[in-house]
Design a protein around this nucleic acid. Structure first.
Length: 862
RNA sequence: GCCGGUGUGGUGAAAUGGCAGACACAACGGACUUAAAAUCCGUUGGCGCGAAAGCGCCGUGCGGGUUCGAGUCCCGCCACCGGUACCA
């Protein structure tokens, strides 16, 4: 037995995250004030940082974990920078999976959901995320929260922003329920693959988001802190297009001729077009298969009826196959005609499968010469193609379809011939309006938000239907309308709540007579549309939140989440913000100044997901490598906005790095103590004496301060945490390389103390458990999170000698060393003095010398 | 089709228009060990020359351009990933 090495081994501090992490987790859990935001009057600048709240599915996924690691690292940094930080967490706790779980194993949705929340909260605590649980945690399925959904709904109803109308909805015949658009996958139910979703006409509640369409769209231009991608997606989703509506009269049926047609019996077709300037080129009118007139005509026209049915069936099939965009254009003539109000031409009316019923008016004028789709259609069916726009009046040969409008003029367009396209659009629309057959119109792709769901696990819509009084809102003082908890979830159709008599039967709030409650619940996107306001005042029992608190914290300084919410959640919550502003509750018009969308986590080349079976469990990672290594790897492996390939070897690498840091730092603890003792004795801030420090010590200090500067800069700007961590690794490598010198006392205790101390501070946002442990082991009893972030000392960070690459004609020849503050002439001289340079330029003429101070020299020779 | 994004070693990736491949992972070689693990040290873009120190050439998806100088900027392509899809 040779005891010497073993002795040393035993003496070296071993990094044991399995001991350190639970110890600190317990301490942090026991101190609710640790992550609580300070008072508003504290004189500190505020920083409101949120990661999108998760759905409590039961397991924290490594993809979530990455998002939270990004937010947590930033929040910790901002704490240390002296900001008043609000960093909340909550649960998007309503939704269909809870009902599915109930169906599958009989667990009541509430129980299932709260159980999942508890499990995930534990996972998050294990990761060491700095959430103010006590002050902010919310679960949207609790009455304390959802009563305010109901309250907002009533406010919107009062203002005409919530209304009820009959509308088409997605209906799964197997679930016997309405589905949200996002639950329709390739035309089928997400739970019943292969079961086509039907369109059913139902009475539904809608929120009038279209009232804010222009503001939602225009606001995007003034949001530089949001990714361009998200803004573009929202612009497309809102889909504003300016054009004109033009009314075409339908020519009466021959059989009707001779008899007097009364004005109210006349039929009209309104078409929407963005190119009214091309109207002289219209050669047919095309209606959507679902258009009201088609339905009417089909009643007496069996051939038409069959054709329309076929079209609708075919569209369904195409949707099922997922290739709705590539479906072949098909149409059938209705045998009827419409009159072009501009020139009196008689145009055949067709029904065509490429006309969308729910966009514009569900009808178009077909201008084959100037629209690619109309062109394709006209060619297929031999409809005339009439050119009415050209680059100029003399154009003979022109490839069709010709769709340019910016530099085109009208031809063969009667009195409008010669007009520029863009101007004609405006003039012709006004002409139509003056003559009563049209109007300038703006159309949006965005539709009002249908919020009714025939489901159980959601917020009850606070409305009552009374035979005598009609729709009666539940009075505010009767909120919340509680969701009954004892309910059997079955496969039966219709709203589950409609089968709970105690819930349904209610006295009319107005007249007191027996009435029925609304049994639909709200879309869960309502819950997440305003939750971040609730965080600012989460325990308020009298209001959704206190305006003063919301106004202090809003807008959110940094919102972090997945790009998959770019449209739905992020439009709904912008809408909600504007409504709340108009209700006088808040002062801001947009919820978040900056939005960050992190990349996906990839495993084996595919997005990590349960269905692909390539899930990595954070718990397993924590058990093997610790939470610090797990979260640090998630930040190190790629910049946060990029997709991240999860490689376990990488986590192992980080954990080795942390072990090295731990061992080194623990070893220097003695030096730190010595330093502190001396400092106390001298009453000064430190004993470092730079002038007397060894070269090794000075180099170490230089690297240290360079690292501080780099990380501080990256936190404030680009968020490239991967290079921040790399910088810390470089620093640790430098320390490691000087371990022997430190052991030999060649570097002063003051320097060793400063380096160790600062290293811990730098690690604090990335590896909070280990940093806290080391901080304590160094003899500090202060809270690491409350320590000020280190300041980079520019003087110490400065290099005295720099290496300047020398190029000849742009090609690297050598590197020369010069003083960091050398002037151009000195650098130039050093370059010319170099042998290799001399050899390279021998016999040639130097025509130009470029000196970039501190960077390089380039000699241009001939 | 349209809108984003990405293309750099065996892999993840670095690089305000200024030494391409930092920092890691993996691999290989070595030290320690009876052995292994752990740890530490070293090598690692390609090709060529050299006994070696070293030296030369090529190299950031492809083709052009701007510049003293391009992974980076401009023009035109290609591939992959994501979103969207007949929006009149």
């Amino acid at each position: 037995m040779n005891s010497m090495p073993e002795f040393e081994n035993n003496n070296a501090a071993r990094y044991t995250p399995s001991e350190i992490e639970p110890k600190w987790q317990a301490r942090w859990d026991a101190d609710p004030a640790l992550y609580a935001a300070g008072p508003h009057s504290a004189g500190k600048p505020k920083f409101y940082c949120i990661e999108m709240l998760p759905y409590p599915s039961g397991v924290l996924h490594i993809g979530h974990m990455r998002t939270y690691a990004v937010g947590d690292t930033l929040a910790r940094f901002m704490w240390m920078r002296g900001y008043n930080v609000l960093h909340p967490m909550g649960w998007d706790a309503f939704g269909l999976p809870a009902e599915n779980a109930a169906l599958k194993n009989g667990t009541p949705p509430r129980e299932w959901t709260l159980g999942n929340i508890a499990a995930m909260r534990t996972q998050m605590r294990r990761m060491g995320f700095s959430y103010d649980w006590a002050g902010t945690e919310i679960a949207t399925c609790l009455p304390e929260y959802y009563r305010w959904n109901q309250w907002f709904f009533l406010k919107m109803y009062e203002r005409g922003l919530a209304y009820r109308k009959s509308s088409k909805v997605n209906w799964c015949p197997k679930c016997a329920t309405v589905l949200a658009n996002e639950q329709v996958v390739d035309g089928c139910c997400w739970r019943h693959e292969g079961t086509l979703v039907e369109q059913r006409e139902l009475e539904q509640w809608f929120l009038r988001i279209t009232k804010y369409a222009d503001e939602l769209l225009d606001g995007l231009d003034a949001m530089p802190g949001w990714p361009e991608k998200v803004r573009t997606m929202q612009r497309n989703w809102i889909g504003r297009s300016e054009g004109a509506r033009v009314t075409f009269d339908v020519v009466p049926e021959p059989k009707e001729q001779g008899t007097e047609i009364r004005e109210q019996e006349r039929q009209h077709i309104a078409v929407f077009t963005t190119r009214v300037d091309t109207i002289f080129g219209a050669t047919s009118v095309q209606l959507a298969p679902e258009h009201a007139l088609i339905k009417q005509w089909a009643q007496t026209d069996a051939v038409l009826a069959r054709a329309v049915d076929e079209m609708i069936a075919q569209q369904k099939a195409a949707r099922e196959a997922g290739d709705i965009g590539t479906i072949e254009k098909k149409g059938v003539s209705t045998g009827r005609y419409a009159i072009n109000p501009f020139n009196g031409e008689r145009l055949p009316i067709w029904v065509a499968n490429y006309i969308l019923a729910d966009y514009g008016t569900g009808a178009i004028m077909s201008v084959p010469a100037h629209d690619a789709r109309d062109f394709e259609f006209a060619q297929k069916y031999g409809l005339p193609i009439k050119r009415v726009v050209a680059p100029n009046l003399d154009t003979d040969d022109l490839e069709l379809p010709y769709t340019d409008e910016a530099e085109s003029v009208l031809v063969d367009s009667g009195e409008w011939t010669g007009e520029a396209s863009l101007e004609a659009q405006d003039k012709m629309a006004r002409f139509a309006e003056e003559h009563g057959f049209g109007k300038k119109t703006t159309t949006y792709r965005l539709k009002d938000w249908g919020v009714s769901r025939q489901r159980y696990w959601g917020t009850p819509i606070p409305m009552v239907y009374c035979k005598a009084c009609g729709i009666v809102p539940v009075p505010e003082d009767q909120l919340p309308v509680l969701l009954p908890e004892k309910i059997e979830i079955t496969q039966e159709g219709g709203s589950p709540l409609s089968r709970v008599p105690e819930f349904v039967n209610v006295a009319c709030p107005k007249c007191g007579e027996p009435a029925r409650r609304e049994t639909d619940t709200m879309d869960t996107f309502v819950d997440s549309s305003w939750y971040f306001y609730r965080y600012t005042d989460a325990r308020n029992a009298h209001a959704a939140f206190d305006s003063a608190k919301a106004n202090y914290w809003f807008p959110i300084d940094q919102y972090i989440g997945g790009v998959e919410h770019a449209i739905l959640h992020l439009i709904y919550s912008r809408f909600w913000t504007k409504v709340m502003r108009d209700l006088g509750l808040i002062a801001n018009s947009e919820p978040a100044t900056r939005l960050f969308t992190q990349g996906m986590v990839i495993k084996d080349g595919a997005k990590m997901s349960t269905s692909k079976g390539n899930i990595v469990s954070p718990d397993l990672m924590i058990a093997k490598y610790g939470a610090d290594a797990t979260r640090m790897y998630a930040l190190f492996a790629a910049p946060p906005d990029r997709d991240l390939e999860w490689q376990e070897e990488g986590v192992a690498g980080i954990s080795r790095f942390l072990a090295r840091v731990y061992r080194l730092t623990m070893k220097f603890a003695a030096a730190v103590e010595e330093e502190q003792t001396t400092a106390n004795a001298e009453g000064a801030e430190g004993t470092r004496k730079n002038a007397e420090e060894s070269d090794a010590g000075r180099t170490l200090l230089r690297v240290l301060h360079q690292t501080v500067a780099k990380i501080t800069e990256d936190f404030n700007g680009r968020w490239h945490f991967n290079t921040c961590i790399a910088a810390i690794m470089i620093l640790v490598n430098e320390i490691s390389a000087r371990e022997a010198a430190i052991d030999a006392g060649e570097i002063s205790a003051g320097t060793v103390a400063e380096v160790s101390r600062t290293l811990i501070l730098l690690l604090a946002p990335f590896a909070p458990f280990m940093a806290a442990e080391l901080w304590e082991q160094m003899g500090n009893d202060s809270v690491l999170l409350r320590q000020p972030w280190p300041e980079a000392d520019a003087e110490l960070a400065r290099e005295s000698v720099v290496e300047i690459p020398v190029q000849v004609n742009g090609k690297l020849v050598t590197v020369v060393k010069v003083a960091a503050d050398a002037d151009d002439e000195t650098i130039k001289a050093a370059a010319f003095a170099d042998e290799k340079v001399a050899a390279r330029i021998a016999g040639k003429t130097v025509v130009k010398t470029i000196v970039v101070k501190g960077k390089l020299v380039n000699l241009v020779v001939k």
